[in-house]
Amino acid sequence: MMFAGWELLRLSESVTLTINGQKYSAEKGKTILQVAVDNGIKIPTLCQHEEIEPYGACRLCIVEITKGTRNRIVTSCLYPVEEGLIVQTDSPAVVRNRKMLLDLLLTRCSENEVIRDLAGQYGVKTPSFREEYWEKHDCIVCGLCVRACEQVVGVSAISLVDRGIHKEPKPPYLEKAKNCIGCGSCYYVCPTHAIHMEDKNGVRRIDRWKVEFKLKKCSKCGIEWAPVAQLEYIRKKWNLPADFFDICPNCK
């Protein structure tokens, strides 16, 4: 990333803010969430990951801020800290809204363990909505898989398809994701375990993207350690010799 001169100047500045009554000093340019995490203050999140740009979809990380006489609810994963900012991470308004968020998520994902646990922590045991509305999704459309694939892996094999209530991460044309290299980043970042990945009999399968990959066997120890496609992708990208991945990292 490039910064203009004045931006660099801003980045190195520091500000003082108050979180839950306690004063903290923080680097300008950081988000409230980053500062909270740095200082061991817990704020629940679902769509956020350190390696990936914040997105602001799940809204779980909401906090209440005071500026002048006005109070406002903002998402802490996006809000940049400011001098004199007053933040409450668990004010009544925040808790009320977080509860409703979890209520809505639970209605969507009524059988998902992660969501049920999280909702339970906020006292939401069953959805407030009538049973006919309950759904059994696992995906909460946080977009982490799609963003990881694009921003971290650089492959963009999958994307968010459709909009509104139909929006979900899907492979193009709902067919086998042809650019997928089987690296499994999506599987690792998914907060609700909505993506199933399995390595079995020399093959890795990710059903959601309708893909299967042959796994590479280490020529020394014989372990099947990574999809051939992924290794080829890395080898080409970094211009590595053809036999570079014949041996697994453990045996190297």
Binding site: V155, S156, A157, S159, L160, D162, R163, P172, Y173, K178
Partner: peptide
């Protein structure tokens, strides 16, 4: 442009 992006646009 990745196929996935075009598909996103076409369905959005």
């Amino acid at each position: 442009i990745p196929q996935s992006h075009i598909y996103s646009m076409a369905t959005f």
